[in-house]
Design a protein around this nucleic acid. Structure first.
Lengths: 137, 137
DNA sequence: ATGCCTGCAAAGCTTTTGCAGATGC
DNA sequence: GCATCTGCAAAAGCTTTGCAGGCAT
């Protein structure tokens, strides 16, 4: 079983529900799950973890910087492991697929924009909504 | 009373609640209100419009491209008049102030990014979370 | 006149919270 | 052993919907 030293570092006990939520996230790298999807996967695995606990644990993980929470269009939150490597997202509107990317020009430009307005950049949220190229139509 | 030909163009009758919601949005250009804030302003003006109607009207306006809906961090939706002029947003995390901006480089780069992954850009959501520049700290 | 609109209240969803019992350390 | 954690159920937002009456055209 993998070790999760980050949990202890964050002052969180290494309980079964927390380890299981981390496992699901690890197995879904790059997939961006909702709290309910994580809950469903746990149920399917025969693991009994309350939905409320999933939410609680995700919030704790977010505070501990283990997880990132995003608000894509649609209202509900999606979660992914916070690997520390910054990236932005591209969401395919037809398949729902999420592609991660990094673009240094954008990273630089947004700093310049904030700066030119007298602000400093704290964070940003950049999502491209796309669809497969199609010549017809 | 101003004319709102866009309403009829969208197949929506020019009813009092719709005109009032449009007025509030016009008077709040660049402010980005939640449905409840719009409702509150109507109540304060002595106008009686149900909250459900505000939501219904905003959804209709969104479909009619009269209004844009954004999901900033925090879960709830905010609305602004859709002037047709595209822009992105910068949100000050200390004051909540929202600044609009346009950057042609970013507009171009995001098309390139989508394209290089085999997609075409449909829409995007770009928000900078910033705070006033401060030398101290 | 009639079909679209509105208000109210109730329902729906996602997310949070209170509490008693359970568990990690 | 004790503080932290979990599950359940209830509550709490925000948003949508059903329905009976009202209004624009």
């Amino acid at each position: 079983m993998a070790q999760y030293p980050d949990l202890k570092k964050a002052g969180l006990k290494a309980t079964a529900p927390r380890l299981r939520v981390l496992e699901v996230l690890h197995h879904s790298k790059g997939h961006h799950l909702t709290a309910d999807e994580i809950y469903q996967r746990l149920v399917e695995s025969g693991e009994v973890v309350g939905l409320a606990t999933v939410y609680r644990v995700l919030t704790q993980f977010e505070e501990a910087k283990l997880v990132r929470r995003h608000h894509f269009e649609g209202g509900h939150s999606v979660f992914e492991l916070d690997t520390g490597a910054h990236h932005d997202h591209m969401v395919c509107m037809e398949t729902g697929r999420v592609i991660e990317f990094v673009n240094s020009d954008i990273e630089r430009i947004q700093r310049d924009i904030a700066s030119s307005h007298g602000y400093e950049l704290v964070d940003h949220h950049f999502v491209l909504y796309v669809r497969p190229k199609q010549t017809e139509e």
